[in-house]
Structures are given as C-alpha cells and as structure tokens.
Design a protein around this nucleic acid. Structure first.
Ligand SMILES: [Mn+2]
Ligand SMILES: [Mn+2]
Ligand SMILES: [Zn+2]
Ligand SMILES: [Zn+2]
Lengths: 157, 157
DNA sequence: ATTATAATGAAAATGGTTGTCATTAACAAT
DNA sequence: ATTGTTAATGACAACCATTTTCATTATAAT
C-alpha cells in the first residue's frame, strides 16, 4: 500500500516515462506480481498470477513487458537450467537487495544468498575496474552462480 | 599429433570407458573439433566443422555427445544470451586453463580472461566453503560472467 | 476532443533442442 | 576371427519457450 498513490505515482513511473514508455494496466499488474513474488518467476508463472487482476492479458504482453523491464534494469533475467527464463525484481522501492544464487543441478532449486556478499562485491569492483581498463570494456553487470547438489539431493544418493 | 596413438589411447578414453561409454568415430570427431576450437562453439557450429572428417554425422548425435561430455565434466556449456548453447572444452590434456567471461550485451562478443583469476578463485573457495556449510550444499562448480559493452559497441554510440 | 503512435492480444511462425525407432557399430565373450 | 549383447547412431517428427505478425485498442501529448 505504500508507494501506491491511486495510479500515476508508483516509484517506477518516472523511469518509465523518462524513457518514452507508456504506463499501462498490463505493466502495472506485471510489476505488482513481480514485487509480491519471493521466488524466481517464469513468464508463464507471471501470466498466471496476473490473470486474477487482469484476465485478458496475453502471454505475449508478459514477454514484451519483461523485455522492457530488463532493458530498463528494473528486472533481472536468469537461466537456472530448467529451460525457461526466470525473472526477478532488481530492487524494490526500499532499495537494492543484492544477492547471488546457489543452484541445485539435480532438482533445480535455487537459493538466494547474501552471505559473503561484501567480500565478493569488493573483489568484483576491483576486477571490474581492472578488466574495464585492460579490455576497454564498459562493465554494467555481473553474474555469479554456484552449482551443486542441495542437501536433499545429496542425501538421496 | 601428441596424445594420439592410432585410435584407443587418447587422453579422454580412460574416462569414457570408466563410465561405461563407448568410444566412437562421432565422439572422436566431436572432441577433435572441440580441442581445435579457440572460440565458443554452438552445437550447429560443431556439426558443420565435423562434416569434413565425418560427413554422415547427425545433429542429434552432436547434441547427445555434448550432453555426455558435459556430464563427464569434460566440456562446459554456456549461455551467452544469443539463444543457443555454447560449448567449450573444460581442459586439454596439458591441464586446465581456468578462465571466466566478459560478454558484450550488444554484439554478443565473448572475451576469455584470466586476469584476477587467482584472487577470484581464492575468494570463491572461501565462499564455497562457507556456503557449503551454511546451506548444506555440495558445490561442484561456479559461473562468473561480466556483462557490458565492448570497445567497438561502446564507441559506436 | 483530436491525433499520433505505442501497446495489446490472438494466432501463427520460429528454431533450438529433444524424443522415437529402426538400423548400425562397439566390444566383451567365445 | 566370429558371435551376441546392447549402446550409439541418424533420419525424422515432435516439443515448446519465445518471437513475429497484424489488426485493434489505449495512452498521452496537443
Ligand atoms: Mn534471487
Ligand atoms: Mn571461454
Ligand atoms: Zn536439489
Ligand atoms: Zn560489442
């Protein structure tokens, strides 16, 4: 209920308009679902969750909106190895919640972790700086994932 | 010409037989292509490159062989965002050549880098140890990628 | 209210990857 | 070297997440 001021004043509206994008019901609904979610949703997951509040939405629109959100940097798109893209809000209104992922290659379970993030971010910054210089590359983002077997899958063997 | 002893003595044969896999012409050809490649090949790239030395190979076999190789840990499978999987030999006979990737989100160019690898690996080991303990997760692998704009794409704007 | 055009949704198309199945090849046993 | 067992192969079809098309609708500037 915070940051919602009867249409037209959500935190991301500014960013949208600034880039020439229009604010639509479909986009509001999709962002609403994303901000409520605590898992990593697929396009179809979102499509289904949006239905109750906007029954006429098309899956195509979900895909297109997600593209826009990824472009704007509001949403991250991931490949966790289960054959479909997974999406996650980059940051809520209250600020970023930077984390990386631990992925079970057997059951595809994904764990968000923030432990050790400080040291990681520190090293990443240094590395990014060095790489930018050496390869004349403008780094905008990074991806860190650990793969292995979760407790359940490990015990099962 | 090293490590090749007239069929039956390539460095990876042991690993293959140990797991009950048979050694076939198709597999030899695919591994040959992979070990000669200095880029990141797609399944179709491999299919095309294998043709001259083995014209009857099917694309299906390429996919299946790659699955086996990934399973055995001889090959890494990557998603660089160009809609097709990319494959790379994990290590040659002379030993590993551990590196990470720098990916241009515009032109999809991929740069292998080994700079800072030592520090990264150091931190990764620590992190892996901590995460393994906390989440009871058996970590077997990691993925680190930096995204951004390469020099050409950056200047173009 | 008018207008320009971005956004939408239904449907079809795309294309990388996987499944099917009859045939062939690898290799252990003889 | 020959045979038998069965993994591997390749042609082809199927799968399915994602994209394209296009006529219609909604947004927002004027
Ligand atoms: Mn996450
Ligand atoms: Mn590489
Ligand atoms: Zn698991
Ligand atoms: Zn580029």
């Amino acid at each position: 209920m915070r940051n919602k001021d009867c249409r037209g004043h959500l935190w991301w509206h500014g960013r949208f308009r600034g880039c020439g994008y229009r604010i639509t019901l479909a986009r509001e609904a999709i962002l609403e679902v994303l901000s409520r979610a605590n898992q990593h949703l697929s396009a179809e997951d979102i499509y289904i969750k949006v239905h109750p509040m906007y029954p006429n939405i098309g899956l195509t629109t979900v895909y297109r909106t997600l593209d826009v959100l990824v472009d704007l940097g509001l949403v991250f798109k991931f490949d966790f190895g289960d054959k479909r893209a997974r999406y996650e809000l980059a940051e809520g209104p209250k600020g970023a919640h930077h984390h990386h992922h631990l992925i079970c290659t057997n059951c595809k379970r994904v764990i968000d972790y923030t432990d050790f993030i400080d040291e990681e971010v520190e090293l990443l910054n240094q590395t990014e700086k060095g790489l930018s210089k050496k390869y004349n590359f403008m780094i905008t983002n990074h991806l860190i994932q650990f793969y292995g077997l979760c407790d359940k899958c490990n015990n099962k063997k």
